[in-house]
Design a protein around this nucleic acid. Sequence first.
DNA 1: CTCGTTTTGTTCTCGCGTTCACAAACTCCT
DNA 2: AGGAGTTTGTGAACGCGAGAACAAAACGAG
Lengths: 229, 229
Amino acid sequence: MTARTTSAKTLGARTLGEGARDIPEATVARLPVYLRALTSLAEAGTRTCSSEDLAAAAGVNSAKLRKDLSYLGSYGTRGVGYDVDYLRYQIAREIGVTQDWPVVIVGIGNLGHALANYSGFRSRGFRVVALLDADPERHDEVVAGVDVRPFDDLEQIVADQGVAIGVIATPALAAQDVADRMVACGITSILNFAPSVLSVPEGVDVRKVDLSIELQILAYHEQRKAQTA
Amino acid sequence: MTARTTSAKTLGARTLGEGARDIPEATVARLPVYLRALTSLAEAGTRTCSSEDLAAAAGVNSAKLRKDLSYLGSYGTRGVGYDVDYLRYQIAREIGVTQDWPVVIVGIGNLGHALANYSGFRSRGFRVVALLDADPERHDEVVAGVDVRPFDDLEQIVADQGVAIGVIATPALAAQDVADRMVACGITSILNFAPSVLSVPEGVDVRKVDLSIELQILAYHEQRKAQTA
DNA sequence: CTCGTTTTGTTCTCGCGTTCACAAACTCCT
DNA sequence: AGGAGTTTGTGAACGCGAGAACAAAACGAG
């Protein structure tokens, strides 16, 4: 007996409605990859694809792909495959990228510039509504069509635009303060590029991207290769 | 270098070959985090720390931290904790960041700029030896003290400098071609920022960082929060 | 209609990673 | 010196995710 007891306490408030299926975190992380692969297939003119095709395009195992998609529902046709456009819409809806997500970016250094200009955001429903920086020297700049404003404008912008997602691209020392201010004014999801561990209250999601950590992981494996050779 | 540190006490279990010590991948991914936390503690003047302290600084569970460190050896003292500098050196050596790692970056757009200027690389043994771009318009630029050179110089630079790690910051369409060229001239570790699935031969490590995927994962959770509210 | 082919959706099993819990080992105080 | 108090290192339990394997469903040919 697999005790599939979705312990009431763990899921807490998320048990209402039947759209509240809980998709495994590992699957959630792959859905955007599938979405991108489907978009790529659609642009190539493909109308229908098998799980093998899509798995190849996404760089995963086909069994894993089918299992991932099964968490969303039965959107395929046995013996045929998946309708590219239909599946793409279903995944997009599940992730939430059919909506418009206003985003603020704090810290307009090199990385902030790159993020503000990154086209992959806009094309997936993310709209950069504000660029903020504490340095007054930057307040004249216009980056990617958005002008840089003082960090103290955060509260008003978040309130006016209904921002729920914030991006931190500041130096490490400023990151926690920025996060605190973000949380205080209602932001509940933070993407952190600063190399520091953020502490946030329950209910706020933080994802961290650390460029140098990725290189260090590669270096470890590289070192191993060199040793055994 | 590679002093084989055969943990004087627990010999016998691991005498099978040098590279035979297999550290779990999940642990490898956390070692850089511990390294950064230790550096931070050291800068704050801390000489010794317990697993609780370090775990808090790294944002993980203390049991997990101890188990992770146990894969490296017995570097702590029961009843006391870990010597910050000593542990820091041991982790750095294990990851390989005590060495010098020459790195080439291909694609000097917004992101390439940010990467070239990122101080977190240099401070961890990564030395950007070349910036390459296919666009001749960029070949005059000097970014972060390194001048941008034609992509066709790749082979010679890799050979001259003994480069093993390459970073791809090009548009998606160019990424596979760049990867192929890198692999052909001997690069065995690739950090890919382009939103495309790279196919590389066995023995080449690829890590992918996708900025928009991270945001999409946040959007999914954000949507769930909104539904239950 | 029936059979064979294709491909999905799901079940089962296995291995990895996380966490708990505790003995071993070390320091400090009396 | 001995006991009390800490803290590490690790064995064991547990839960989750990956992959293999297969039954169910759709389609087409005859």
